[in-house]
Structure formats: C-alpha cells, structure tokens
Design a protein around this nucleic acid. Sequence first.
DNA 1: CCACAGCGATAGGATTTCCTTATGCCCCTG
DNA 2: CAGGGGCATAAGGAAATCCTATCGCTGTGG
Lengths: 328, 328
Amino acid sequence: MPLPEPVPDLVSLDLLDSVIRLGSIRRAAAAHGISQPAASMRLRSLERVLGLDLLDRSSGRARPTLAGEAVTEWGRQVLDATRDLMVGAEALRHQGRTQVRIAASMTVAEYLVPGWLQRMAASTPDVAVSLQMGNSEQVAESVAAGANDLGFVEGRTAPAGLESLVVLEDELVLVVAPSHPWARRRRPITAAELARTPIVVRERGSGTREVLEAALGPLGLAVTVGVELGSTTAIKTAIEAGAGPSVLSTLAVGTDAAEGRLVPVAVAGLSFDRDIRAVWMPDRRLPEAAREFLAIAEGTTPGAPVFSRRGPRRPGGAPEGPGRPPGR
Amino acid sequence: MPLPEPVPDLVSLDLLDSVIRLGSIRRAAAAHGISQPAASMRLRSLERVLGLDLLDRSSGRARPTLAGEAVTEWGRQVLDATRDLMVGAEALRHQGRTQVRIAASMTVAEYLVPGWLQRMAASTPDVAVSLQMGNSEQVAESVAAGANDLGFVEGRTAPAGLESLVVLEDELVLVVAPSHPWARRRRPITAAELARTPIVVRERGSGTREVLEAALGPLGLAVTVGVELGSTTAIKTAIEAGAGPSVLSTLAVGTDAAEGRLVPVAVAGLSFDRDIRAVWMPDRRLPEAAREFLAIAEGTTPGAPVFSRRGPRRPGGAPEGPGRPPGR
DNA sequence: CCACAGCGATAGGATTTCCTTATGCCCCTG
DNA sequence: CAGGGGCATAAGGAAATCCTATCGCTGTGG
C-alpha cells in the first residue's frame, strides 16, 4: 500500500525544522544554502500539501502556529529516521579501507546499528565506520579472518574461538495480523498449538528459526513451516496480509506493534530469549575506535516492551534498567 | 544543522518498499500509478544517491541485495514516521464536523496521538477524527463546553467536573547535552543542586513546569528559570546547543536519548511522575467511535526506558506490562 | 513622530527534473 | 527453440524549482 499522495518533501520538513530552530525563514534559507524566496516557496508549498497553516508570518519574524509545532516535531521523527538511513547507507558504502570495520547480522544491522553510528558520529566525527551484513556464521567468520574488527551476532551461545560480550538481550515474539483469531485470545497459545500451526519463517539460516527449534525441541515438538521468505520486511508484509503467524525479534516488531499492524501473542512455557553479542579476535587488541564503538553498543537502551498493558496503571514504576537509578 | 545533501526521496523509498513487497518493479510501478520506466529510473536514482546497489536485476525479477534489505527496512521507519505526520496533519485539518473530535495537550498530540490515529484508521477506516491542541486547561474547557468529545491532558490530578481515566503514566526527566558536565556524573543530582541551576523551561503554562515546582516545593526549594522557550523542539535545540539542563517528558526525549543527542540525568529524591488522562463529559454517553478511540489509547504501550543499562544484562527479564503475560 | 533596518512576499526568466510512450535486450519457461 | 514477462534505454515534452531583483510590512531607535 503506497503512501497516499501528495507526500510532504523531506527537504521541506528539514527546512521547517531549521525555521523553528533559527527563528526566521531567512536564516533557515542561509543554513540550507538556498535563497530566501526559494525557502519561502518551499514552506508555502508544504503548507499547501498538508492543508495547514504552519507559520505565523504576521509579526515580522516567522513563528510557528500550534499546528506548526506539532508538524515540526512529527517531521523531526521523520528526519531522525532519515538520518538513520543515511548513516547506515554511508557505512555500507565504506566497504573497504576505513578505520572501524563492523560486521553485523541483519537484525542488528537493521535495527541497532544506525543508532550506534549516530552516537559514534556525535562522539568521534572523524572516524569512518564500515558495515558489512550477513548471518551470524558469516559475521563470525569475517571477524575470525580479520576482515572486520568487530562483529555483532545473535544467538543463545557465544561463537567459539572469539572474545565476546553480551550487549543486549533480545527476545523473539509470536506475532499475527490484527485480523487473526489469535489476536483476540486472552489465554496464551500452548507450545503444542504453536507446533502444529504453519509458521512464516526466513529461509536463510537466520537465528530466528534456530531459536524457535531450540525452544520446541526439548518438548518433543517441531516447527511446522508454512512459507519461507527472504527478508524481515517480506515476512511482516506476509503476516499483515494474513499469511499466518510468525516469530520475529522484538526489535523488528517494535513500531509495527505500537501502531497496531502486528499483534504479539503470548506463548505458554516457551522461552524465546537470545543474546546479542559483540565478538572480536581474542589475541589482537582492539583498535581504539573499535573500543569506542563497542562502548556505545554496550550502552544501548533496551527497546520498548511489546505486550500492551490492559489496565490503566503500570505495576512497578517506569521500566528502567538497573544502572543509573532515578533514585526517587 | 540541515540534513546533508543529497537526500533520498520519500516517494522513492516508498517505491522501493513496494518493490520488495510485490517482488517486481513493474507491479510496484502499477501500484503507484506510474509507468514502469519512471519507477525504474527512480530506483536507479535512489541507488545513485545512496551509492549502493539495492536490487539485483540479473535474474529476471528484481530481488533485493543485502544492502537493499537493510535500506528497505530503514526506509520503512522513515515511511512510518511520515504516515504519523500525515494522519496527524489530516486530523488537524478536520477541525470541524467529523465523527470523533479529540483535544489533546501538546505533548500527547505530538508523541501519542499519531500512533492512536493509525490504529484507529486500521480498525475503523471510515471514521474521521479531528484533533485540536492546547494546554491542559484549554483541553478540559473545550471538552466541558462540548466542543470536543474526548480530551487528553497531563498532570498530577484529574480535572474537576469531568469523567477521566488514566491511560498512561508519564515521567519527566532531567536532560542535558552530552557535552554537559552532568552527563558524565555517576551520582544523582541532588534536589538542591537542581534548584540552584538555571533550567530551560517552556513559557506557556505547560504541565512540565507545574510538575517541577510541585516536586521541589515540599522540600522548600524553587525552580531557577534560565531561558523560556515556546516549543519542545526549541527546548531540545537549546539543550543540544549547550543552553543548560531542562526537564522534559520521557515521551519527548525517547529518540533523542536513544541516539545520544540528549542525556538523561538522575535526580535524587524527586518524583516527576504525572498521569496522562482521557477526559470526557460525565453525563453524556460517549459516542461509539469515541469509545473505540479511548480503547485504543488505553492500550498504549509504555515508551522505552530512558536510562541506559550499565551492565551487559538486564535484571528481571523483558520489561513487559502486566496484561498478557508471555507466560514463560 | 519619523526614519531605518530586518524580514517576508511577489515577479519574471532560465535551468533542471521528471514523466510518458516507444522500443530493444535478456532471462526463464514450456 | 520459440514465447512471454520484465527491465533498461531513448527522445520529447510538461512541470517544478531556483535565482535575482524589487516591493510592502513590522518593529525599533532617535
């Protein structure tokens, strides 16, 4: 389902953000390297596309209206995601001689690496980071072969022969489309029910299927494979289209669950936990820049919880990690 | 700081997403209502802008490369944020005769309403929702006057004369720029330290300042106002520019903290909690569509925690809500 | 009370971008 | 080996965008 036309322009949203930051259209135009009339026209065009008055120009300087404030903040979200995309693309482009060479599994590369790259760029802007992707085995191999300084893999156990550190705990969740019968169930699905239901899985030997089988195996159950698809995006699309349940990383379902496109379903008696580990060569001392990147990755905030609250109150306060207690 | 040129195009990212979903450039072009050569050129242009090969066209149908999968997923994040913006803009546009009239405070409107609107659109596509913004008093007034069916306000107490329901608990956090000395502190800031430090605050009577004063008041302390600014975006910009600490909703600092632009700082002995409440007229029965919207808002997943973990492990499993236990 | 300075809107003209139709080449399949 | 689906290329035209120059308005300082 394509985005409904007309679509606001990224450059215009960026320009609007600059106007709010700098307080005038003229300054924003200068910051973007375009003339003031061009900026003025872009903003007017944005207002026309959205059908809203965003700026109050009546008092000399341009001040945001209420709608303008809201659109600016929403636009900031769009621009942040765009920055993620661009730093990710840049890291992918630098597949070669750079100062830090990172390898990551698809899930880590798609959902965690862009944020790390942004923090890295903020703390040490002069260090170029390259990113290579592959499944956990390929990542481990490339690190062992010295092709990359640092690798990030997911799984239940640490790869042999490499130094490793758990940077985050991930969890797989069973998800279905909102229209699926399981979306309205209150009782958790049983392991037996799950085992006899065809599941949408990734074809490549991604950790997902491995964890699923490792969880069902001890109970004497096996996975019933429905469709095999090649990418997380394709799987999500298939689920939304009603292809059946699937098991995905909480990292991958975060926004989709928050906006109701996918519904997580509880499974009784199964643990889908896995660790996300940084791995590197044991003997060789890590380059300084790689240590910096590792420190950033280690400081990652866990993602938002997937299961919605039912009642109006949270039980035990905010879901904070153990470090840096707010000390109330 | 403007986005570095060249910027990928939203329409092209949308098109790429469709190509991955539908498996061919031709189908994607048809879905977007453009010709196949136009789609082909847009995709090639996107590859040129990003400097990456996204699609493997050698085998008849266009299949994504590894980089293509990653860019598609990153693009999905951008498109999701864009959809948030567009449903928000549409709701703002429909300030008039629609089927559900919502009023919300700025914080709720900026960070929560778009998600609710998306879920609303998914469950009941035919219902148009209008959105009006203002501070908590204005929201309560407009609901009491019957101008809106449902309001969302933030604060420590429920507005008088209206039915209300807590849909989420919010918390304010002290945030500073990464370059600020407090960003590297391990010990929490004391209330006295906070009170004697100039703080960046919003000028309007937004709940933020109120909560801050309510927290300091019982200790015999008062807020030292540094700069007063008109919008959350402006405050964030000021903090990043080194203007000093501020106190913001966790909803507002979520992505900024995750990407390291803002650093939350713990404060000892102060509680910055507040509730986000839905309010409506007590006597009148809520229209069916408004009840639906309320149900969606009530099911909101709490945001990601703001304080980073220090150690490599989380303490007590995933931060899930009480409802729908995963039952492991 | 008036003049100045800063800001934004408008006008006209040139350049660039983007799309459509028509056509050729390649891969896979029967 | 022939057919069909799919993508790339070419050429022409429509549309959007940007620039320079200029005017009108607001707020301020003398």
